[in-house]
Simulated scan of single mutants.
Amino acid sequence: MNATANNAQSVTAANSSLEFLSFTLGKEEYGISIQKVQELRGYDTVTRIASVPEFVKGVVNLRGIIVPIIDMRIKFNLGTPTYDQFTVVVILNVTDRVVGMVVDSVSDVITLTPEQIKPAPDMNSTMTSDYLVGLGTIDERMLILIDIDKLMSSAEMGLADPSLA
């Protein structure tokens, strides 16, 4: 019985690893749950909408769905964004909505075990710790792990605005 319990624990431990899509904003590397990612696209022209926050670049028509496009570099005050061949729009499925998130580049999908995820330090930053899952560590790399559901559904994102639906 003991061997069976140990096998069950090791299967549970193997299944508890999490996959994150890693991307860059400026010099920092971030990660979001791969389960929230619908697709990756190159940056394309967006239709601007009046009276939305600056970080909402506008909307695009994605196969009949109007998708708001959020520039994360503007949102997190990480300098003036530049759009080039490496700029990626990550199409997300969060809180029953489809949202596009503009990032500088996408690296890869990283699998982390719970032991590799450390709690985020409490700092006064533009990204409050409410949106952070923690910090993922792989060898010398460190990923800032974002709870994209909480971030995209926060009141400050303005995505509850019916004009963007």
Rank of each mutant, 00 (worst) to 15 (best):
M1E: 08
M1G: 13
N2Y: 13
A3S: 12
T4F: 11
T4M: 11
A5Q: 13
V11M: 08
T12L: 14
N15Q: 15
N15E: 15
S17C: 13
L18H: 13
F20T: 08
F20I: 05
L21V: 14
L21C: 05
S22E: 13
F23A: 03
T24S: 15
L25H: 06
K27S: 14
E28S: 13
Q35W: 05
K36E: 10
Q38W: 05
E39D: 09
L40P: 04
L40V: 06
R41M: 15
G42T: 12
Y43K: 04
D44R: 08
V46Q: 09
V46D: 10
V46A: 12
V46H: 10
T47F: 00
S51R: 14
V52A: 05
V52R: 10
V52H: 05
P53A: 08
V59Q: 04
N61Y: 01
N61R: 01
R63F: 01
G64M: 12
G64H: 12
P68H: 06
I70N: 04
I74T: 12
I74M: 08
F76K: 01
N77C: 07
L78H: 01
P81E: 00
T82P: 02
Y83V: 09
Y83L: 02
D84M: 02
F86S: 15
V90L: 04
I91M: 11
I91Q: 06
N93A: 11
V94Q: 09
R97F: 04
V98A: 07
G100S: 10
M101C: 15
M101L: 15
M101A: 15
D104M: 05
S107Y: 04
E115W: 03
E115N: 12
Q116I: 05
P121G: 07
D122R: 04
D122I: 14
N124K: 08
M127G: 03
D130A: 01
Y131F: 15
L132K: 04
G134T: 08
L135W: 00
G136Q: 04
I138Y: 12
R141P: 02
L143D: 05
I148H: 01
I148G: 04
D149K: 09
L151N: 08
A155R: 14
M157L: 15
G158F: 11
L159W: 13
A160F: 02
A160P: 00
A165W: 02
A165V: 03
